[in-house]
């Protein structure tokens, strides 16, 4: 930080800048001599006055070179209107119709819905065809069992050829050839049930 000069220094500086030493009043001269010598006073004054001569003053500055300014040309009003309308028509032509866009969008969304239903139907079909689906409802399984029964063929017995020849039954073969119990001698060994009544 630069320190400010005091009042004496200010007065001295003002005197050096404004008045030659020879023209100083007596009081000013006494004051100056109390601060610096006459030579120093003269030297400082000369520094101030001669400094303007040390640099050349006759140098001409170059011409100003500014960036080129764009010339703004005015065009007739009809040209401006034509240009605007042409741009508008071009815009209308190129830009897609907003209504068509909505319809397309609706179609697309409905397609998505159909697809969802189709997936749902497919799931039901899979169930009927006894494809194994983990989340199959129990009722559906019962129905599937029925369907399975219908689909299964009845198991058939082996069709063996009759190889045994059986005799034909007749009266002789059926006729009783034994003796009755009352006539049989061995009947005496049988229990007489009538005795227990």
């Amino acid at each position: 930080m630069e320190k400010n000069i005091n009042n004496d220094e200010t007065r001295l500086f003002d005197l050096i800048e404004s008045t030659p030493f020879s023209e100083l009043s007596i009081s000013d001269r006494l004051f100056v001599e109390s601060q610096i010598t006459e030579e120093e006073f003269t030297l400082q004054r000369r520094i101030m006055s001669d400094s303007s001569e040390i640099f050349p003053e006759n140098i001409t500055p170059h011409q100003l070179q500014t960036p080129s300014v764009k010339n703004v040309k005015m065009i007739p009003l009809y040209q401006a209107l034509l240009a605007i309308s042409a741009i508008f028509i071009l815009f209308i032509t190129i830009w897609p119709n907003p209504t068509e866009g909505t319809q397309n969008q609706l179609t697309a969304s409905s397609k998505v819905q159909n697809k969802k239903e189709f997936i749902h139907d497919t799931i039901i079909k899979y169930v009927n065809q006894v494809k194994i689906i983990e989340k199959t409802v129990y009722d559906t399984v019962v129905e599937l069992v029925t369907a399975t029964k219908l689909n299964f063929q009845e198991p058939k017995l082996l069709e063996a050829v009759q190889t045994l020849s059986l005799p034909e039954l007749n009266k002789e073969m059926i006729a009783t050839k034994g003796v009755s119990l009352k006539d049989d001698n061995s009947s005496r060994f049988t229990l007489k049930l009538n005795n227990f009544r």
Partner: peptide, 25 residues
């Protein structure tokens, strides 16, 4: 005040350097 101060000290410094070349000295 700063301007006066700078002028004063600038002149003093220059005078100090030029003192030895003063024709009178």
């Amino acid at each position: 005040g700063t301007v006066k101060s700078r002028l004063f000290y600038a002149t003093q410094k220059m005078a100090k350097e030029l003192k030895e070349y003063n024709p009178k000295f």
